[in-house]
């Protein structure tokens, strides 16, 4: 009996249902899955190029599908620990104040990609409405697509 109930994209939507105020954007990116996924999970390289809230990152530990990252926050210039669950097509990241998720699956020569963002601070959605969060996520998806096309 297969244990695979949800593909990564469906799984991200299920996770979003359990996180108050989570924003999710899903698009088909015009780049092959391998290039997209390599770009999205290039924590020490590409991450700071597409993620506006990260100015740099360093992997401090890898243990199977668990990764620990130390990321630098721009402007405020502090470092924060980010815990990650990483599998092929699945990346869920959590820091003290945020949750971010990326899920992908091949779709022909292109890639269906979903991106989630949520603040872990009560009332955070009041300071950043859902529509603005989705605009930021959409912009990040375009950057990932551009970087992946350059890579692929």
């Amino acid at each position: 009996m297969s244990l695979q109930v949800l593909d990564p994209i469906e799984r991200l939507h299920v996770i979003a249902a359990g996180i108050p105020g989570a924003a999710v954007v899903e698009r088909v990116l015009d780049a092959p899955f391998d290039a997209v996924w390599a770009t999205a999970t290039d924590f020490e390289g590409a991450l700071s190029c597409f993620e506006v809230s990260v100015s740099g990152a360093r992997v401090v530990e890898r243990d199977g599908d668990r990764v620990t990252l130390e990321s630098r926050v721009p402007v405020l210039r502090f470092r924060q620990r980010v815990d990650i669950h990483l599998r092929e097509g699945w990346c869920l990241m959590q820091g003290r104040g945020f949750v971010a998720g990326m899920a992908a699956r091949p779709e022909g020569d292109r890639t269906r990609f979903a991106h989630l963002e949520a603040a872990r601070v009560p009332g955070a959605r009041l300071t950043q409405p859902l529509i603005r969060a989705k605009m930021i996520l959409t912009r990040e998806l375009r950057r990932i697509e551009k970087l992946a096309r350059a890579r692929g």
């Binding site: 109930v5 799984r11 996770i15 359990g18 996180i19 815990d83 869920l92």
Partner: peptide
């Protein structure tokens, strides 16, 4: 932990529940 908003805990819980739920549904 999952109830209190820990997304990684929710993610692990999903790994545990998904096959169980699918077995019932099948």
């Amino acid at each position: 932990a999952a109830q209190s908003g820990d997304a990684l805990a929710l993610d692990r819980l999903l790994d545990e529940l998904a096959p169980f739920v699918l077995r019932i549904c099948r």
